[in-house]
Design a protein around this nucleic acid. Structure first.
Lengths: 189, 189
DNA sequence: GTCTATACACCGATAGAC
DNA sequence: GTCTATCGGTGTATAGAC
């Protein structure tokens, strides 16, 4: 023995799946060991800090992938409307049409949320900022852009939560379609 | 010994607090025992089905209280706009201005969500229906009313999730204020 | 109706061989 | 870098006295 059985990236992929589906508390070392094909002691070789370090590594990587897929398109030089549409399309892909839960949301609603506050903040802050910036460029005042950015995030996280709670993914896509129409829509009254 | 130390209703209150703050998986019998002041064996006297039965009892009771505080005002004979305002005010009270998590949401994002699908559906369905009915009475077409009802629920659950994840309750109240203005607002474009 | 004491499985984590 | 074996602790749940 001695050679790595699977690349570290693949280990992280499989850990991510378990944490996302089962949450921090239910994701036991036995499950994580089984999912990766590595013994518990081998997991401690990669993550000396144990389960907590695994979850944080997985959340960091998830934030990074989210940044590439969802946030980066908001920073292109395309017209604001196109950038928002691209974000929404990529959200659909990222969450597999609502079939997959939000890891950040799962950890946020778990019993050990305190362990992850900083990682969660890091994951949400740049998204919120980039989204608000695009809305400003689309012509909204600073306050209105900020409110709309927060609001879009609430709807996305809320739809994923409801979908998971009911075991029904369809809510997510319906919400995304709405969002596409309303994101830059002007309101009256 | 023999006499009940505290009424069952108070036992349920304290169990609710633990499940809402820590989630199903982190809420250990030791914590539940400590929070109620009852020994583990006494908890099994009230809930022979153990932790699962405790969580279901607590969720049922939470749904019931939610119905009284939030859904019932939607069914009064006041004008639709007033009914919606009343719901929003009571949501603020129910969630203590965003300081308290949504028990249903916590269980929905936990690792044993499958145990609670039916209870979650029961909790969300009548809310969604009552909300959509009010919006129809406010003049929206059936489809539009349904969409708006779902959307409001997504925003509420999403704001509670983000608030919990960041340890920052203020998002919730800001969202509620927005919701009050937009719920029956007509859109253009 | 409440308690103490306990059963037994599994938890997260570590030691040490290869 | 991986494993088996094992540690001490805690998990859910139960038995049985009062």
């Amino acid at each position: 023995m001695g050679a790595a059985l699977i690349p570290l990236a693949e280990v992280l992929n499989r850990l991510t799946k378990v944490f996302r589906e089962e949450g921090y508390d239910s994701a036991t070392l036995s499950r994580l060991s089984q999912a990766t094909g590595l013994g518990k002691a081998s997991l401690y070789h990669y993550f000396p800090g144990g389960k907590e370090e695994m979850a944080k590594a997985v959340l960091e990587r998830s934030n990074q992938r989210f940044h590439e897929m969802v946030i980066a398109p908001l920073c292109s030089d395309a017209p604001p409307g196109e950038r928002l549409d691209k974000m929404i399309d990529n959200l659909d892909a990222y969450y597999a049409g609502g079939e997959e839960s939000c890891l950040l949301g799962v950890l946020a609603m778990g019993g050990n949320v305190g362990l992850f506050h900083e990682h969660i903040k890091q994951g949400l802050a740049s998204w919120m900022r980039s989204l608000a910036d695009v809305l400003k460029q689309a012509g909204f005042a600073d306050d209105e852009a900020q409110i709309r950015a927060e609001d879009a995030i609430f709807r996305i996280e809320g739809a994923l939560l409801v979908g998971r709670g009911l075991g029904e993914a369809a809510y997510f896509r319906r919400m995304l379609a709405q969002l596409k129409r309303q994101m830059v829509q002007v309101t009256t009254q």
